[in-house]
């Protein structure tokens, strides 16, 4: 029972961390970034590079985030900016971009599976059960991430500008806010979060060129259900992540894999704006 509870909590945390980057981009730029999976993969390989070169595993996440930020700025300028007025095409273009990035990774690293050293290994005793220490750490990371993003959004000038752009871009521009700069920074931040998330999950699974793909669709669904709000994402992760764990454990792992997708499709039909939206 405890193990099930911990599974639900940690799975929700991981889903939250992975989907956060996608959500910020959708919130501020009203765009779906289908290269998100590829960014996760880039993060994974960044982690691999760091440990392969003998640096401390604790540096993997900051390095991955940095790589992601730079990549995000470049992608926004070249691929995303021309497509502001064509959101469906933006999905396709970022998907194509994801393919390109994946192929570059294959070219650079080969198709094989890699492993990165984990910053923390072993298990922790919690509630009289031995549980993966890293998974538990990720719960803490998710909480910090949620708090940090909320702080960024509500306590900084950048956050205020971003919220203004989300609510009414024209009014924000009329007050002197350069909405293009806000978008660029947001995309960079979203990409950094995605890459960072990729680095964070590598201790749990192996690194291969397609590692990001399964997370893409699930993140996408979670973000839509969340109504593009941080508490909404936390709730969506808990609800749908919990459902996934329950179905995987008690019904079948294969059906568990589609739980999020199916439940999200149904939820969105009932409440098209998501749990917190509107």
């Amino acid at each position: 029972m405890t193990a099930l509870f911990l599974d639900i909590v940690t799975t929700s945390a991981i889903l939250f961390i992975v989907a956060a980057g996608l959500m910020i981009i959708l919130g501020v730029m009203k765009l779906i970034n289908f290269a998100h999976g590829a960014f996760l993969t880039v993060g994974g390989y960044s982690a691999y590079i760091v440990t392969d070169y003998g640096f401390s595993p604790w540096l993997t996440v900051p390095f991955a985030a940095f790589v992601g930020f730079v990549l995000g700025i470049a992608v926004e300028r070249l691929v995303v900016r021309p497509l502001y007025s064509r959101p469906l095409d933006a999905i396709l273009a970022t998907w194509g971009l994801g393919i390109v990035i994946t192929q570059i990774i294959v070219f650079a690293f080969g198709r094989g599976v890699q492993f990165a050293e984990s910053p923390m290994s072993g298990t922790l005793e919690i509630f009289a059960v031995g549980y993966s220490a890293w998974r538990l750490t990720l719960v803490l990371v998710a909480v910090l991430l949620g708090v940090g993003l909320t702080a960024l959004l509500y306590l900084t000038r950048f956050g205020l500008n971003a919220r203004a752009v989300i609510m009414n871009e024209d009014l924000a521009r009329g007050l002197g806010i350069d909405s293009v700069k806000v978008r660029v920074s947001t995309f960079g931040l979203g990409a950094a979060l995605a890459c960072g998330a990729g680095a964070l999950i590598t201790p749990l699974l192996s690194i291969d060129p397609n590692m990001g793909l399964p997370w893409l669709v699930n993140s996408f669904m979670l973000v839509l259900v969340s109504g593009v709000a941080i508490p909404g994402l936390a709730l969506a992760s808990l609800l749908l992540g919990g459902a996934q764990v329950v179905v995987s454990t008690f019904v079948s792992p294969i059906l568990g894999g589609v739980t999020i997708v199916v439940f999200a499709a149904i939820l969105l039909r009932i409440r098209p704006k998501g749990l917190f939206g509107g």
């Binding site: 691929v79 021309p82 497509l83 095409d89 396709l92 273009a93 194509g96 393919i99 390109v100």
Partner: peptide
């Protein structure tokens, strides 16, 4: 193919 795809969608 990926590069062509992105170029086509954008341009």
């Amino acid at each position: 193919v990926g590069v062509l795809f992105v170029i086509v969608i954008v341009l």
